[in-house]
């Protein structure tokens, strides 16, 4: 499988990465090189093989449903690029 320029643009948008028009051709070449490389997996017979979900068999751990953390809003906001009071500030989302 290989990707065309329109698909590169679509992936970039899905990944939320701005891509300039003059970068598309180069990216397309690189992505196609990687896709061609992984193409060899199609020769492996995987019928009846379970996909791996955990390399080390382990039971999911559960804990008591109780509050173990909190009251650290200053810590949470310490690295905010923009804040107002106890909120993260973002560009307008709803008109």
């Amino acid at each position: 499988m290989s990707v065309d320029a329109a698909t590169v643009r679509r992936i970039a948008h899905l990944a939320r990465i701005a891509v300039a028009d003059d970068e598309i051709a180069h990216l397309q070449g690189e992505l196609n090189a990687i896709l061609a490389f992984v193409e060899q997996l199609s020769e492996v017979i995987t019928d009846g093989i379970e996909p791996m979900t955990s390399v080390i068999p382990m039971e999911m751990k559960k804990r008591e449903d109780k509050v173990t953390d909190g009251g650290i809003s200053e810590d949470v906001l310490r690295n905010a690029p923009a804040r107002e009071g106890n909120y993260f500030l973002v560009p307008k989302v709803v008109e």
């Binding site: 499988m1 990707v3 698909t7 590169v8 992936i11 970039a12 899905l14 990944a15 990465i17 990216l27 992505l31 990687i34 896709l35 992984v38 997996l41 199609s42 492996v44 995987t46 093989i49 379970e50 996909p51 791996m52 979900t53």
Partner: peptide, 25 residues
């Protein structure tokens, strides 16, 4: 971008699921 592509609708089985099966092998 590669990761976004292989997880995107219609490609998940062909790429990610197959890769995880190969991983089992």
């Amino acid at each position: 971008m590669i990761g976004t592509y292989v997880l995107s609708a219609g490609y998940y089985d062909a790429y990610y699921l197959r890769a995880q099966k190969v991983r089992t092998l």
